[in-house]
């Protein structure tokens, strides 16, 4: 076992991990942050997306030791300081951007990364950016609406593709 230290949601954390311990496993089992979901474990579905040094990554496809010293943000770190939902989270609720909710942590983290890079994306840009996040409930329309609304843009009738 090796000791790993990183900053997670603003706090310095330290834990014992194996070489093979994935970042997703360290967050969930080491730190109890089970908001990061493991859907496929093959880097296809995006339910495990977190931010590492500000960049969206699939935490099931990064080793915990590769994140040593990094700044990590998970879905548990997304709410406002007073505990109210962040703009993106609130927008997912307002626009019914989830049904079962399993993909939602990854969707929110990817959406936050998109809006940090591109504050006013088009509908096509939102759909393209969320290619690596799979949802089997919503058909994506309400997720796309939620992201567009969170960017402060009018939400058009999102066309079915």
């Amino acid at each position: 076992m090796t000791t790993v230290t990183m900053t997670v949601n603003g706090k310095t954390v330290t834990g014992e991990v194996e070489g093979r311990t994935l970042l997703s496993g360290f967050l969930r089992e080491g730190l109890g942050l089970t908001g990061t979901h493991i859907g496929c474990d093959t880097s296809q579905c995006g339910a495990c997306v977190v931010h590492v040094d500000g960049k969206a990554v699939k935490s099931c496809t990064m080793f915990a030791l590769d994140a040593a010293g990094a700044t990590v943000k998970t879905i548990e770190g997304m709410a406002n300081a007073d505990g109210s939902l962040s703009v993106i989270q609130q927008s997912f609720q307002d626009h019914h951007g989830l049904q079962c909710g399993f993909c939602t942590p990854g969707m929110v983290m990817s959406s936050a990364a998109l809006l940090a890079e591109n504050p006013k994306p088009t509908e096509a840009e939102v759909r393209h950016y969320l290619e690596g996040n799979i949802c089997r409930c919503t058909g994506y329309h309400n997720i796309v609406k939620a992201v567009l609304a969170a960017s402060g843009q009018d939400v058009p009738a999102v066309a079915a593709e």
Binding site: S43, G46, A56, V57, K58, S110, A113, G132, N133
Partner: peptide, 9 residues
Amino acid sequence: IGDPAVRNR
């Protein structure tokens, strides 16, 4: 290549 999260790694 891949998707945004893959391109970051």
